[in-house]
């Protein structure tokens, strides 16, 4: 299973005074089971890009293939595509609407056409996966804390059992603890279910710690695409487009420049620690 984008471009407000080309000839291949981070400055086109992946937005030019089929074809079932490629929007808690958390999570599966029992089972499973405490299931979703609401919203998408899960800045506006919990939850899903996961983020640190591949967006184009250590080698270019490599990258380069034989392309604090400790053994 794969998603392929071929020369995809998108322009907002075409033909008006406020034309804005948000994607410029993006070509990408996303394989089964990958854990990808999309990173980029504000306005670089990340949100626009991911909405193309599940067919919510229609490319102005270029093609998108899902499992080898062009999703813009007349007879392609885009509604089904949206359930197979689950998309969690930025601030997803703003979409909660039902009287209870449980009912809200059932919304997706019921739209998929499952009966009440099956939808309920899926909702239970999703809520458990998302780590929502059981005593909250029958409470209104509006009284929860921000982090809990976000878990419920993520469960709402998980309940549809998507094969690909896309999350747009799932940690925005959360405290460090809430952030780590959500990221651990996502990483856990990747490990346990082998789900393809695409994580949009502003934070290099977050992304470096979890993902296997980073796609850097700049001005509607793919700027870099590769494994974290490959991408962070270009930390000087990253700075030019308003991003930063993780702090450890700078530390390790500094140490290396001062003559220490450290592993300078370490991307996480843990790797850096091991590499420095090795020197002293």
């Amino acid at each position: 299973m794969s998603i392929i984008l071929n020369n995809v471009s998108y322009t907002y407000g075409e033909g008006t005074a406020y034309e804005m080309q948000a994607l410029k000839n993006v070509t990408l291949k996303i394989d089964d089971g990958e854990f990808i981070g999309i990173i980029g400055h504000t306005g670089s086109g990340k949100s626009t890009l991911i909405q193309h992946l599940n067919g919510l937005m229609k490319a102005v030019s270029g093609e998108i293939y899902f499992n080898g089929r062009d999703i813009s074809e007349e007879d392609f079932d885009r509604k089904e595509l949206r359930t197979r490629v689950g998309l969690v929007f930025q601030y997803p808690e703003h979409q909660l609407f039902e009287t209870t958390i449980f009912n809200d999570v059932c919304f997706g599966p019921i739209n998929q056409g499952f009966d009440k029992n099956e939808a309920g089972l899926r909702a239970f499973e999703a809520l458990r996966m998302a780590g929502v405490p059981e005593k909250l299931y029958y409470q209104p979703p509006f009284d929860l804390s921000g982090g809990q609401k976000r878990r419920v919203a993520i469960a709402g998408v998980l309940a549809m059992k998507p094969e690909v899960l896309i999350l747009d800045e799932p940690t925005a506006g959360l405290d460090p603890k809430g952030r780590d919990e959500i990221l651990d939850l996502i990483a856990g899903m990747h490990r346990a279910k082998g789900m393809t996961i695409i994580l949009v983020s502003h934070s290099m640190e977050d992304v470096a710690k979890y993902v296997q591949r980073i796609i850097v967006m700049d001005d509607g184009q793919v700027f870099l695409d590769g494994a974290p250590r490959e991408v962070f080698k270009y930390y000087e270019q990253l700075e030019k487009i308003g991003l930063k490599a993780p702090e450890v990258t700078y530390l390790m380069h500094d140490l290396k420049n001062r003559g220490m034989a450290v592993d300078w392309d370490a991307t996480t604090v843990e790797e850096a620690k091991q590499s420095i400790l090795k020197l002293f053994q």
Partner: peptide, 16 residues
């Protein structure tokens, strides 16, 4: 804009 986003978010959950 908010309507647009919520609409898309619910469509992503299969709403029609």
């Amino acid at each position: 804009e908010e309507t647009d986003i919520i609409m898309k978010a619910q469509m992503a959950r299969g709403a029609d």
